[in-house]
Design a protein around this nucleic acid. Structure first.
Lengths: 206, 206
DNA sequence: GCATTATAATTGAACGTTCAATCAAGATTC
DNA sequence: GAATCTTGATTGAACGTTCAATTATAATGC
C-alpha cells in the first residue's frame, strides 16, 4: 500500500491503543485488545508498524498534541494585566482538557508517571515545565513593576498550577463528586480572584 | 502457630506487598515478587492468608492508616483564625506524607485510581472527602462572621487542597524538578499568604 | 494492455514465558 | 492426632512476540 494507507493504519492503531492504554493502564492493556479495538484481524499486524508494545506506547505519547508548548510561544500575554493573563492561561488549560483524546492522555500521564520514568519525563516536559516556564518569568516581571507584591514566583506558579490541575484531576478521577464540581468558568473566575485578592474578610482581627 | 505469628505473617506480607505494588503498579507486581520481598519460601503461602491478589491489594489499602479522617474529628480548629487553621491543616497534611509508607500508598492511590473504581473510592473517602468536609463548613462559618469574604467555599476548599496536593504530587513524581521545589514549610507559609491576601501589588491599575 | 515481477500489507498458527492460582504433601504446634 | 501453617511442584490460561504463508498493490517489461 502507499504511504497514505500506511499512515492511516498507523494512526488507526495509535488511536485504538490510546483508548485501551487510557482505560486499562499499560500493563493490563494487551496487544490483542488493541488489535480488536482497531478492527484488525490479527494482533500480529501491529508488529508491522511498531517494534513492540513499548514502542507503540511511546508512539501514543509522541502523537499527543495536547500540550502546552505553544502557550509559552505566545508572548502576546506579557502585556496583559495579571487577571487577564491568568484568565487566558486557565482557559487555554481547560480548553485543552475538553478534548476527549487529551483527557485520555492525561489519565495515562498521571497513572503511568508513577511507575515509568519515561512517562514522567514526558509529563514534565509537555505539561509541568511549559506552565512553569510561562508563569515564573511572567510573575517576575510583574513583581518588578509592582503589579504583584514581592514573593517567590516559583511558589505562586506552583500554587496556581496546582489549583488548575486539581480540578482536572478530580473531574477525571471522582465522577461521584462531579455533582459538587463547579463549572470550569466559575472555578477559574473565583480561583483567580483568590489568587489576586485573597479571601480576607472585613473583620481583620479574630 | 499462634495468633501473633499469624498476625505477623499477614503484616509481613502486606508490608512487602505495599512496597512492590507501589513501585511496580498493581498489574506488574507479581505474587512471586511479593513473596520474595516478604522472604517467603513459596508464593503459595500468600494464599493461606489472602484469597487472591485483589484481596491482598485491598488489605494493603485497608491497612493504610495515613489518612485524614482524624482531622475532621479534631474540632479544636473551629476556634482558630483562618491563617492558623489553614496552617494547622497544611502541616498535618505534609506530616502525613513524610512517612515513607504513606508516600507509597499515595503513589498507589494516584496511579491505580485512574483504572480502578475501588481505589478511586478509597482515595475519595480517605483523602479528598475528609479534606473537603473539614474545609467547607469551616469556610462557611468564617464567611458568616465576616472573617472571610463571601464566596463559594466548595471552590476555595478545592483550590486550597489543589495547592497542597500539587506539591506532594510533583515531589513524588518529578524528582528532576526537586531542585526548584521549595521546602514544605516555606511553601505552606507563602501559599496561605496568597490564599488570605492574594498577590495584588501596589499598582492597582495597568 | 497484458503478463511478470517486486514490494507492501495482512493473516493464522505457533513459540517460549510469565502469571495467578491450586494441590498434595510435609512441618509445626498444642 | 488434629488444626494450623508452610512448602515445592504443577496447572492452565494469557501474554508479547515471531514466522512462514498469503493476499493486495504497485512497478516493470514487452
Amino acid at each position: 500500500m502507499d504511504a497514505q494507507v500506511q499512515a492511516n493504519r498507523r494512526a488507526q492503531i495509535i488511536f485504538a491503543a490510546r483508548e485501551v492504554f487510557a482505560c486499562e493502564g499499560y500493563s493490563k492493556a494487551s496487544i490483542k485488545k488493541i488489535a480488536t479495538k482497531a478492527n484488525l484481524n490479527s494482533p500480529a499486524l501491529i508488529y508491522w508498524y511498531f517494534d513492540n508494545k513499548a514502542d507503540l506506547f511511546a508512539a501514543v505519547l509522541a502523537e499527543a498534541t495536547l500540550m502546552l508548548h505553544e502557550i509559552s510561544l505566545n508572548n502576546l500575554i506579557e502585556d496583559l494585566a495579571p487577571q487577564e493573563a491568568l484568565h487566558f492561561l486557565a482557559q487555554r488549560f481547560f480548553e485543552i482538557f475538553e478534548c476527549p483524546a487529551n483527557k485520555r492522555i492525561f489519565r495515562i500521564l498521571i497513572s503511568e508517571s508513577m511507575n515509568n520514568a519515561e512517562v514522567s519525563d514526558h509529563f514534565a516536559e509537555t505539561v509541568i515545565l511549559p506552565l512553569k516556564n510561562y508563569l515564573v518569568p511572567y510573575f517576575q516581571q510583574k513583581i518588578a513593576v509592582h503589579l504583584l507584591r514581592p514573593h517567590d514566583p516559583e511558589i505562586s506558579a506552583r500554587a496556581f498550577v496546582g489549583m488548575l490541575m486539581h480540578y482536572v484531576f478530580t473531574d477525571q478521577t471522582f465522577p461521584q463528586l462531579n455533582a459538587s464540581q463547579p463549572l470550569p468558568d466559575v472555578y477559574i473566575e473565583e480561583v483567580i480572584k483568590i489568587f489576586m485578592d485573597g479571601l480576607q474578610g472585613e473583620n481583620l482581627s479574630v
